[in-house]
Simulated assay, not measured.
Amino acid sequence: MDVIIVAGGRGKRMGGVDKAAVTVNGERLIDHLLDEVSVLDALQQVVVVSGRNLEVRPGVKVTAEDPPFSGPVAGILAGMEELREAAAERTAVLAVDAPESATLIPELNEALDESGADVAVIREEGGHLQPLCAVWHTESLWLALNELGDAANKPAKALVGAAGSVTELAGTGEERDYDTLEELAALGEYELPEQ
């Protein structure tokens, strides 16, 4: 399995900061998520999509959507293109501002096995679909991207909508994304990167 971490947002609700570089309890959000990803079974490649100057650990690829800040689907497409040469059978899609979300990947993989669907995606406790916490058959993800056409400024839900078949898994809270400083405070003591 390959993993794409979408980290190219503007972070508007946090004052325009790079969310990946925000530290909570002394650890950057990107590092926390990469820690969770690193223990996954059958992990092949990991790519972080960010148009900012983001440093990551050795072995993790970094790419950017073109143009920068053109939305999550454009970011997923950039990640897929980076992974294309040695792509795995499955691709997980995660968001950097959901640092616990990787813990749900084993359950999403199992749901994909059992359902035979193109994608397994989390539906949050509040009822919202969380398309940036999903596992796809890689071939199906390419088909959905092609179905959508121009990826710029399209929401991730549109990508799931372009899938042939979708299976949903109830969220546990670990899929939660943190969009504001108030929400970050619930995670712990945070520090914003210098701009």
Results as ranks from 00 to 15, higher is better:
35 D>M: 04
82 E>Y: 06
156 A>E: 07
86 A>H: 15
167 T>M: 05
189 E>N: 13
94 L>H: 07
30 I>S: 11
89 E>I: 02
103 T>F: 14
107 E>H: 14
173 G>E: 03
111 A>Y: 03
17 V>F: 07
85 E>D: 15
7 A>N: 02
110 E>V: 11
36 E>T: 05
182 E>A: 08
86 A>G: 12
17 V>G: 02
131 P>R: 00
125 E>A: 13
9 G>Y: 08
108 L>R: 00
2 D>F: 06
125 E>Y: 10
175 E>W: 01
164 G>F: 02
160 V>R: 03
23 T>C: 09
8 G>T: 14
90 R>F: 04
168 E>Y: 13
57 R>N: 00
85 E>Y: 13
35 D>A: 04
132 L>I: 06
2 D>L: 04
63 T>W: 02
2 D>W: 07
126 G>Y: 09
101 S>A: 14
98 A>S: 15
127 G>H: 08
178 Y>M: 04
74 A>K: 04
152 A>R: 14
72 P>V: 12
87 A>D: 07
159 L>S: 00
91 T>L: 08
6 V>P: 03
127 G>S: 11
99 P>H: 03
189 E>K: 10
50 S>L: 01
8 G>R: 00
109 N>D: 13
147 E>H: 15
115 S>L: 02
90 R>E: 09
18 D>G: 11
155 P>K: 08
193 P>I: 01
98 A>M: 03
141 L>Y: 03
80 M>D: 01
55 E>P: 01
85 E>T: 14
112 L>K: 03
173 G>W: 02
180 T>L: 08
110 E>K: 10
171 G>P: 00
